[in-house]
């Protein structure tokens, strides 16, 4: 009884604090939201993101967020991606002695009903992921979102079908290859126009998407009659591939059996 009263008091204090903050914000405590000085910036973005009549500055992609992410500030996003792959490399380094080994876990998994339902939903999850990646430059979404959605399917499969089921079909070598292909694609897309420009003696920039004043080279504006946003489509596809493969690899490694994980920490108390 006492604990219930305590919980109720705690909750009502929190709710009161939120209501007070909301009241202060909505009655103008922080000034006009969003500040008026930021509006011209948003208008500039909206005018240049998809504007065929202004070919010198447009990104030719109707989705403003993806265009800003991969074109206006592409280098930032590249380094964000590097941080993510650093984390994956760190996990693999922690498990460096056992992640290649075949696990001794049995091929058990959950009941047949759950397995069939998971088979159907996994297919649906993967289709949503592919659609998110391929439409990332047209509708909300993009490479990282698609990769995170796609990674849910193997994670559910790992739990429902058992780890052995997935690791027998999708080895760590295949996953690493997929991840490296994705990374290679990202790098090549970033410098593709610079390489082409170097080869044919034309000026071009790193991370160039559409033709600029000083450089006439450009990625395709439309593919099959649909706006393609130049580099954005390629960046999204490769990022989704790399993120999905990286997440799956990490989940597979983290799901190792106790016996296998224990091998990693043997001798740790004495230092290396």
């Amino acid at each position: 009884m006492n604990s219930v009263i305590k919980a109720l008091a705690f909750t009502s204090v929190l709710i009161l604090a939120i209501v007070a903050l909301a009241y202060a914000t909505s009655s103008g405590g922080l000034g006009v939201l969003p500040p008026e000085s930021l509006r011209p910036l948003a208008i500039t973005y909206l005018r240049t993101v998809y504007n065929p009549e202004n070919p010198k500055f447009t990104a030719m992609a109707p989705e403003a967020v993806t265009a800003i992410l991969w074109d206006y500030r592409g280098l930032d996003t590249l380094f964000e991606t590097v941080v993510f792959y650093g984390a994956i490399i760190a996990v693999l380094t922690l498990y460096r002695e056992t992640y290649r080994e075949r696990d001794i876990l049995p091929l058990k998994g959950l009941s047949i009903v759950v397995k069939r339902a998971t088979a159907v939903t996994s297919l649906a999850i993967l289709s949503v992921a592919v659609a998110t990646a391929l439409h990332g430059h047209l509708t909300p979404g993009g490479g990282f979102q698609a990769g995170a959605i796609a990674a849910v399917a193997p994670l559910v499969m790992l739990i429902v079908f058992s780890k052995r089921f997935l690791s027998d079909r999708l080895s760590h070598v295949q996953l690493l290859t997929m991840r490296n292909l994705g990374l290679l694609g990202l790098g090549l897309t970033a410098i593709a126009l610079a390489i082409v420009g170097f080869a044919i003696g034309e000026k071009a920039f790193i991370f160039q998407n559409q033709a600029k004043e000083m450089s006439k080279l450009s990625f395709p504006q439309r593919i099959l009659g649909v706006p393609a946003g130049g580099t954005l489509l390629f960046f999204n596809i490769f990022e989704a591939l790399a993120v999905a493969a990286g997440f799956t690899l990490v989940f597979m490694v983290l799901l190792s059996s106790e016996e296998l994980s224990r091998k990693e920490i043997v001798g740790e108390e004495h230092g290396y």
Binding site: T66, Q145, I149
Partner: peptide, 14 residues
């Protein structure tokens, strides 16, 4: 909506 897509996958799945 861009955040929603990644947040839904992370919040409900991963």
């Amino acid at each position: 909506p861009d955040i929603v897509l990644v947040y839904a996958a992370v919040a409900v799945g991963i």
